[in-house]
Nucleic acid binder design. Sequence first.
DNA 1: GATGAATGAGGTTTCATTCAT
DNA 2: AATGAATGAAACCTCATTCAT
Lengths: 188, 188, 188, 188
Amino acid sequence: MSTPSTSGRKDAQRNRLRVLKTARALFAERGDDVQMPELARAAGVGVGTVYRHFPTRQALVEAAAEHRFAELAAYAGTECRSRPELGGGLERYLTRVGEVLAADRGLSAAIEAARGTSETEPRGPALAELEAAIEVLIADGKAAGTLRADVTVADVYMLVGALSATIRTGSGDWKRFIDLAMNGLRTA
Amino acid sequence: MSTPSTSGRKDAQRNRLRVLKTARALFAERGDDVQMPELARAAGVGVGTVYRHFPTRQALVEAAAEHRFAELAAYAGTECRSRPELGGGLERYLTRVGEVLAADRGLSAAIEAARGTSETEPRGPALAELEAAIEVLIADGKAAGTLRADVTVADVYMLVGALSATIRTGSGDWKRFIDLAMNGLRTA
Amino acid sequence: MSTPSTSGRKDAQRNRLRVLKTARALFAERGDDVQMPELARAAGVGVGTVYRHFPTRQALVEAAAEHRFAELAAYAGTECRSRPELGGGLERYLTRVGEVLAADRGLSAAIEAARGTSETEPRGPALAELEAAIEVLIADGKAAGTLRADVTVADVYMLVGALSATIRTGSGDWKRFIDLAMNGLRTA
Amino acid sequence: MSTPSTSGRKDAQRNRLRVLKTARALFAERGDDVQMPELARAAGVGVGTVYRHFPTRQALVEAAAEHRFAELAAYAGTECRSRPELGGGLERYLTRVGEVLAADRGLSAAIEAARGTSETEPRGPALAELEAAIEVLIADGKAAGTLRADVTVADVYMLVGALSATIRTGSGDWKRFIDLAMNGLRTA
DNA sequence: GATGAATGAGGTTTCATTCAT
DNA sequence: AATGAATGAAACCTCATTCAT
C-alpha cells in the first residue's frame, strides 16, 4: 500500500521476511490473539501469501520463534565472547536473553500457546549454532575458574527455558533469577 | 421429574468436588483440550451443573490449579518440616513439588493455556498459607547455615514457577534444575 | 421465529426432522450450493444444532438421500403392489421413482456432489427394505410371465441408478428410458 | 530470460495438447480433486499457460470431456462399422464405450462435478459427428432386422449417458447394463 | 507467450456458554 | 438445583484466478 509496486517472483523472499517481522511485532504486542487475516493485512499482503510461506498458523509461530532464537544465538556467538578476559560471558549472555524476552513477552506467550499439548520441543537449525556458542562460553567460564566443572550446555539450555518462563509469567524478578542461577553454576 | 426431590445443599457440595476432581484428572491426562460438555459427562453431571459451580471454563481451571496448589502448600507446612534437624527441608519441598508436577504435566499445560495473555497471576487463598510455610523452611535453612542470608519467599516462589515450566516443557532434567537452584540459594 | 417456544429436550427429534426437511427442500431447489449457515437459518435453528444432528455436511446430504430413498422404498412396498393382478408393478414403481426424482433434481445433484471421488456407495437401512419390496415386484412379474426369468434385484437397482442419472443430467426423456428398460427386462 | 526466443505459435499448440493430455491423465487418476497449479506443474508449464489455453477450470474439464468424446465418436465411425455384415455394431460400440469409461472413472467424476447444477449439457463439435456415426449403426441394425423400428439417436445417446453413470457410480455390472439395454432396443 | 507469486472471498466446523424445561 | 439441547461468533484454511515481471 505504501510501497508502489508489489513486485513479482524475485522478492518472494522479501515478502516472507515482511510477514515474519510483522508476525514478531504483532505477537509481541498482543500475544496469541492475532488472527491470520489481520496479520496479513498488517503485513500488507493477502492471507494466501501468508499461507504460501507458512503452511499453518503454527508454522508461522514456530518461524517467529526460530527467528528470535537465531538472534539470541548470534549474540551468544559474537558480543558475549568479545572480551573473554572479563569473564562472565555466560552471565552477560543470560542478561541479554532476559532483555530480549522481557521486551517481547507476547511472542513468548504465542509460542507457548502454539506448543499446545505437544510433547516435543521443535528443534530449529539455530539451536545447533547456539549450542556451539554456549559451549565456548562455558569453556571460558571454566578456564577462568568461575564455573563448576560439571556445567553442561544442557544445563544452560534448561536455565534459558526457565528464565523465559519466569519472564513470560512474571512470577518474579528475572534479574534475581539470573543471579541465583549463576550462583548455582559457580564453583562453591 | 418423577423423583420428588433429590436432596438439597449437601449434594451441591458433593457435585462441586466431583467436578473439580474430574477436571484435575482429565486435564492431567489430556492437557487443555478438554471440552466442557465432555468434562461434565465424565463427572456424571450436566454442563449446567458445571457452570453453576464454576462460572467460566477459566474459573474451573483456576480452581483446579488452586486445588493442586493447596496440596503443595499443605505438604510444605507438614511433612517437610517434620524433621528439621535433618536440614534440607526446602530441597525436600522442591523435590516433592517436582514429583507432583511431573505426574501432572497436562494440568500445568491447561493452567498455562488458560492464563492466556493475562498480565497478572491469580493469587488464591492457598498462597498465603504456602508463603508462611516456606518462610519457615527458609528460616530453618538459614538457622542451619545452609542458605544465603538474602533468600526470600519471593525467590522460592519464582523458582517453583521456573521448576514448573521446566517440567511442563520438558526442557531438561528437573532434578538437575533443583540441584542447580539449591546451589544458587546456598551460602558460598 | 414464527413458533412461539423453541422448546427443549423433548423435541430434539422434531428439530432433527425440521433440519432434514429443510435440507431436502433447499437442496431440491438449489442443488449443492447451499451453505450450512443458510440452511440453518432456513430451518430456524443455529448452525450448531444442525451439526449436533449431522456431524458433517456430507452426513446431512446422506441423510437427505436416505430420507428420499426411504420414501421410494415405502412406495415400492405398498402402492405398487396394491393391485398385482394388473401386472406392471415394476413399471409403475420405476415411473414413480422417475416422478419423484424429476421433481427433485437438485437433491440428486447435491448427493452426487457429496459422493465426490468416494469409491463406495453408502448403504442406508432403507436399502434392505427396498430390496425386499422389489423382490416381490419381480416375483409378481415373473409369475405373470412378463419378466425375463433371469431378472434380479441387482438389475433393477442398477436401472434405478441409471434412471436417476438420466433425469439428473437431463440427457434424454426419462419416460422413454423406462420404456426401453422395461422392454429389456421383458421376455422375448 | 537468457534464451533469445522460445519459438512462436507452434509451441503454443504443443502446450495446449500437453495440458489437455495431462488433464485427462490426472483427472482419470484422481477425479475432481486436482488443483490448477498442480496440474500445471504436472504438465510442465505455469498456471498462466494453462489459463491462456483454457480460460476456466470448467473449460479445461469440458475440453477433456470433448477429447474423450471425440475418441468415442471416431470409434463409432470406423471400427464399429468395419464389418456390418456381422451385425451388432451398436452393441460393439456400447461395449467399447464401457471399456473406455471404465478405465477412466476419475475423468467422468470430474466432468460430473464440473457440471454442477448447470441445467444444460455442453454440446461440443464431436457430438454431431458421433450422431451421424450412430445413425449409421442404427440403420445397419434396422436393416439387419435386429433393432426396433422406433430406435433413435436420442435413445442411444441417452443410454450412453446412463451407461456412463452406471460405470462411474459403480451401481452395477455395466456389461449386464448393456445386455439389458440392447434387449430393450431389439425387436420383440 | 510464459511464469508463478499473490490474492481474498468464501466455506466448514468448533465449543464456551445460555436457558427452557 | 440439575439437565443438555441449542446457540452462533469466530477461526482456520483452500484454491480458482489474476497480473507484474
